[in-house]
Design a protein around this nucleic acid. Structure first.
Length: 556
RNA sequence: UGGGUUAUGGUGUAACGGUAGCACAGCAGAUUUUGGUUCUGUUUGUCAGGGUUCGAAUCCUUGUAACCCAACCA
């Protein structure tokens, strides 16, 4: 099979510099296996940016026959919670990936503590009682070297004893820290005697009250990778300056040399991705929680109606590289529609109903029609539709004075009702204010869908519902949460929030088949968009979230 | 103004000294009982200057711009 056939079979073959590195490592014999890890901190929910990291780590390992650990970077007990651990595990699985192991950095606290003592014995770490403010000053600036303080030359024996006291809870929070003794003049600020341990008397979600000292990221991450035998440790660009320290810890300890590689995080237009900002949106009630359908969180997108496949495809197409970027949300929506078009069952909903009376159809007559559940997938079969004297159509599908090219109903105009008959609009009934309240139309019995011998040609096709059969439903129309492409770049991102990001339609009408659906079920409402049944649905009041509109190329 | 990283159409991403390609978006058309889908066609690009070379997005050089680093966060 040549390249072209391969592409036709499984989509475009994506490759990136990380895969390139792995491929070379395998070919050169540097590694004979691939083990990656996805290392979230359990202090918030995962978002589409994490999705890129998940797909990169799990997908790439899979591609090379390797595996991936899910490891929680839980070294800061004051911000981390089990609620987030559970949410993250659920999100990873929902995306379609299975961790080889579920691990925690806190699993390694004992080992990390031993290694810290090892460092002290080597004279490469010391307990520092200087205040954080003073330490910051002593570190100097990027252009001026730092200066040592009196604790830098404390003997290993004393340091060992003090470190033990720290661990035993003899000092209050912030009283002292353990610092690596590296290079106060390094141009890399992270090498100027970085903090290794701090005192935090707080309950940890896994280790409880066992510890009152907790390792910093730099002391925990690389060693955790090493302990697990991670071959390729992939993280985002901002960790590039940490790499030197990552390597220093591993080399100094003489342990398995995991290697760190960095890629640019995925950003999306018209949304924010920083955990801090997302948290703020939730805390200040701009949205309905972490899983609000407008949030770029995995939970939010799931509730909105996104499919795991569409998210994976988006990340694949967005690509992996080393430059900062903002991906066009259009690409995400393209991937979504592509998947949903193939899989979502078609249903009829009328969001803003306009009554139509078929004047030449007797009240007691019901014509049964048949319509496809999904024209893209004939195996989904067909379903019946009742055609009766009183119908509802979309208000948008009638215009008193239509512009050129308008294909739908207008006085004297003819249109086909999808899967049913062609009708002609004879009269628009108006109320005292002049609003159109109902349409009187004539149907043409010979134009029955599938066996049309009426000879009438119409361009427009609209959706409709039998008034006697339609059911009430609530429909929530979501739009982008922000009005500018890069709200994160604004002085205050909240000023660019879209005030119309949610419109609730309480009295939409839907076909009866929709009442049997379950939470999370996805549908295409014909000619409108894709919708997903929301968690707030009850049998009496089903709620549907608009996932994304259909593309609409109609221009007057 | 110390160190690090990055510059390819509107957006994102390929091209590894040899025809600047792909996707999304845009535009135009065909098909269509969803103004959807599908299918055609098409506009737009190598950060700038100099150099090496038969040939440079790619190598050298000088600039420019953007981002990251001075948390007891990760």
């Amino acid at each position: 099979m040549d390249n072209k056939e391969k592409e036709a079979a499984s989509g475009p073959e994506t490759t990136n510099f990380i895969e390139e590195i792995i491929k070379n490592d395998l070919e050169s014999g540097k590694h004979n296996r691939v083990l990656t890890r996805f290392p979230p901190e359990p202090n918030g929910y995962l978002h589409i940016g994490h999705c890129a990291s998940i797909v990169l780590n799990f997908g790439t390992a899979q591609k090379f026959g390797g595996e991936t650990n899910l490891r929680f970077d839980d070294t800061n007990p004051v911000t981390e919670e089990t609620e987030f651990v559970d949410g993250i595990i659920e999100d990873v699985q929902w995306l379609g990936f299975k961790p080889a192991r579920i691990l925690y950095a806190s699993d390694y606290f004992d080992q990390l503590f031993e290694w810290a003592k090892e460092l002290i014995r080597q004279g490469k770490a010391y307990v520092d009682f200087t205040s954080s403010k003073e330490v910051a000053e002593q570190k100097g600036t990027p252009t001026t070297p730092g200066v040592a303080n009196q604790y830098r030359d404390t003997s290993p024996e004393v340091n060992l004893a003090e470190f033990e006291k720290m661990k035993n809870g003899e000092y209050p929070d912030g009283h002292c820290t353990l610092r690596a003794k590296i290079d106060l003049a390094s141009p890399n600020m992270h090498m100027r005697d970085p903090y290794l341990y701090r005192i935090i008397h707080a309950h940890h979600h896994r280790t409880g009250d066992k510890w009152c000292i907790y390792p910093m990221y730099d002391w925990a991450h690389g060693q955790s990778d090493s302990i697990e035998g991670i071959t390729h440790s992939v993280c985002t660009l901002e960790f590039i300056p940490h790499r030197e320290l990552y390597d220093w810890c591993i080399e100094t300890l003489g342990i398995y040399p995991s290697k760190q590689y960095e890629f640019a995080r995925v950003n999306l237009t018209y949304t924010v991705m920083s955990k801090r900002k997302l948290k703020q949106l939730v805390a200040e009630n701009y949205v309905d929680g972490w899983d609000d359908p407008r949030m770029p969180t995995i939970a939010g997108m799931r509730r909105r109606g996104f499919t795991p496949a569409s998210l994976r495809e988006f990340v694949k197409r967005a690509g992996i590289a080393k430059r900062e970027k903002i991906n066009d949300v259009n690409l995400l929506e393209y991937c979504l529609r592509e998947d949903l078009n193939k899989t979502a069952l078609r249903r009829i909903a009328v969001l803003r109903p306009l009554k139509v009376v078929i004047t030449n159809l007797p009240e007691d007559q019901t014509e049964w029609m048949e319509t496809e559940n999904n024209p893209e997938d004939p195996t989904t079969g067909k379903r019946p539709l009742a055609f009766t004297r009183e119908l509802y159509i979309e208000q948008d599908d009638y215009m008193e004075t239509p512009p050129a090219g308008y294909n739908r109903l207008f006085p004297g105009g003819m249109t086909r009702l999808k899967s049913a008959f062609i009708i002609r609009c004879d009269e628009a009934v108006k109320d005292a204010e002049g609003n159109v309240t109902e349409l009187h139309c004539t149907y043409f019995p010979e134009s029955r869908s599938g066996q049309d011998n009426s000879g009438i040609k119409v361009k427009g096709v609209i959706h409709w519902l039998s008034a006697a059969h339609a059911q009430k439903a609530e429909v929530r129309l979501y739009d982008r949460l922000f009005q500018v492409e890069d709200p994160g770049a604004e002085e205050d991102f909240k000023t660019s929030i879209n005030p119309n990001s949610l419109e609730i339609i309480k009295d939409a009408l839907v076909e009866p088949a929709l009442l049997d659906s379950n939470e999370g079920d996805r549908f295409q409402f014909m000619r409108i968009g894709y919708f997903c049944k929301d968690k707030y649905s009850t049998h009496e009041n089903p709620v549907f979230n608009r996932t994304v509109t259909l593309k609409d190329s109609w221009k007057p």
